[in-house]
Design a protein around this nucleic acid. Structure first.
Length: 98
DNA sequence: CAGGGGGCTAAGG
DNA sequence: GCCTTAGCCCCCT
């Protein structure tokens, strides 16, 4: 098993409605200090992947995409659909179910 | 080999 | 909140 496969399996273990940081996921996979590599793996995931990549956020609990980017919106939508609040930096209010 | 850059992190101003 | 520095590891040009 290579690094990517280990990350895939570890990623698939994150339960619905939960999030985990890149570094946390890396450590759980047995690769401390590999947060950036986790980011690289997620970036290269095929668009059709079934893996819950959206459940991975940075160490501040925030989405690691530029706030206007498509990736940001996509991840935000997925998190909200799981009941996970996402703070809007502008209004300081959380997007949430409803 | 050198340089630049990532879905990163922790620590400081 | 913003920004910079330093450390990390790997990828691409």
């Amino acid at each position: 098993m290579n690094f990517e496969d280990i990350i895939y399996t570890e990623l698939s273990q994150i339960p619905f409605g939960h999030t985990m940081s890149y570094g946390q996921l890396a450590r759980r996979a047995g690769f401390p200090n590999y947060a950036r590599q986790v980011g690289r793996v997620l970036k290269n995931l095929p668009k059709n992947t079934q893996l819950p990549w959206h459940r991975v956020v940075n160490s501040q609990g925030k989405i690691s995409f530029p706030a206007q980017s498509d990736g940001y919106k996509e991840q935000r939508g997925r998190l909200i659909s799981e009941g996970i609040p996402v703070i809007n930096d502008k209004t300081k209010k959380p997007y949430f179910l409803g």
